[in-house]
């Protein structure tokens, strides 16, 4: 069989034991899949969404209730974005817990980490585009965090918001970042990330003489597996999107001073919980940046995983990184849970 364009996007063969689902969890592949769903569904939404404060809410209601299959497309976009955050985090943890972050892959690890941050920014900007009562608190609190940064904060705030408070300029900027700026960055860094996977030698494996099996699978088999994963992923996404609607609230009003829903989007709940215990800048900006820096520093500061331990879960020589990542994950999950379970103020 002559390899098609899609086959050519894959290496001719890859090691069998490292191409198993239980090793990769399919997280990298699913991240690409979800990004593609997001691009297509987002492009469809752009035909109807109107990025002005007066029309944003009504246009989303129009998409949700009146456009044929509009609700399905919007729900697909929403759920793909939420699941992408989880899947990308799983992908990152898989890399850490299998010790795949070492040189020569450590730069690609940083690219991956920046993709994760971009995904979070895309998620947040998309969330704000609803411009309804459900997002007002997060918009005000999130942008006030920017304002709290010493020296550059106020200037950065003006840059993000385009004005001294949320309004048409801010919505235009969030929209432009969401559909253009961040997407271009995501695609650029994403393609670079995928290119570096192959340039850095494909999936991390032990040296040939130390592999448990020399078996490899062909790109035909790999594409078939990806096709199956995409089939299942599509079906699950459709099922979730058809039956669980994406959140929607009344359009943002100037009248009510107290936002009805004073909680951050779920992926920033841990930051919201941190904010309860201290200064906006230190808890809301500094600590998350430290978490990011610690994650980024793992391949540079911690001892490298021994080559013969690569290609399997939880290599002994990668313990420090595994423990560090585990602590961070538990801390973020714990804070998220605490924020989610806290009684409303």
């Amino acid at each position: 069989m002559r390899p098609s364009f899609f086959h050519h996007l894959h290496p001719p063969t890859i090691p069998a034991s490292q191409s198993r689902f239980r090793y990769t969890l399919g997280a990298g592949g699913y991240s690409v899949f979800l990004t593609l769903v997001l691009l297509v569904s987002g492009a469809l939404l752009m035909f109807y969404y109107v990025p002005t404060p007066a029309e944003a809410g009504p246009s989303i209601q129009m998409i949700t209730f009146l456009v044929p299959f509009g609700a399905l497309v919007r729900n697909l976009h929403y759920w793909s974005a939420q699941i992408l955050v989880v899947v990308a985090a799983i992908h990152m943890l898989r890399v850490i817990f299998t010790g795949a972050y070492n040189s020569p892959r450590r730069f690609n690890y940083l690219l991956g980490l920046s993709l994760f941050v971009l995904a979070l920014f895309l998620d947040f900007t998309g969330y704000v585009l609803r411009w309804d009562e459900g997002v007002r608190w997060a918009l005000v609190a999130g942008t006030n965090l920017v304002d709290s940064i010493p020296w550059i904060g106020p200037g950065l705030y003006r840059l993000v918001m385009g004005a001294s408070q949320p309004g048409p300029a801010a919505l235009t900027r969030f929209y432009t970042w969401h559909i253009f700026g961040l997407v271009v960055l995501l695609l650029g860094v994403g393609v670079w990330h995928i290119f570096r996977v192959r340039r850095d030698g494909g999936i991390a494996v032990p040296p040939p003489e130390q592999r448990s099996t020399p078996q490899r699978i062909s790109r035909f088999e790999l594409v078939r597996r990806e096709g199956l994963a995409a089939l299942i992923g599509t079906a699950v996404l459709l099922l979730v999107s058809a039956f669980i609607p994406a959140p929607l609230a009344p359009p943002m009003s100037e009248v009510t001073s107290q936002a009805a829903d004073s909680s951050a989007p779920w992926f920033f709940l841990w930051v919201q919980q941190l904010l309860k215990s201290g200064d906006a800048f230190w808890m809301g900006v500094f600590v998350p940046l430290v978490v990011l820096a610690v994650l980024g520093a793992i391949p540079y500061l911690l001892p490298a995983v021994k080559p013969d331990e690569l290609g399997r879960w939880f290599p002994r020589s990668g313990r420090p990184a595994q423990v560090l990542a585990l602590i961070l994950v538990l801390a973020v999950l714990g804070l998220t849970l605490a924020a989610a379970l806290a009684p409303p103020a």
């Binding site: 078939r224 096709g227 199956l228 089939l231 299942i232 079906a235 459709l238 099922l239 058809a242």
Partner: peptide
């Protein structure tokens, strides 16, 4: 067989949608 089962699953979901 897996691909067939996956396709079938997707079809069932499409009917549900």
């Amino acid at each position: 067989i897996r691909l067939f089962a996956g396709t079938l699953f997707l079809l069932v979901v499409l009917v549900a949608v």
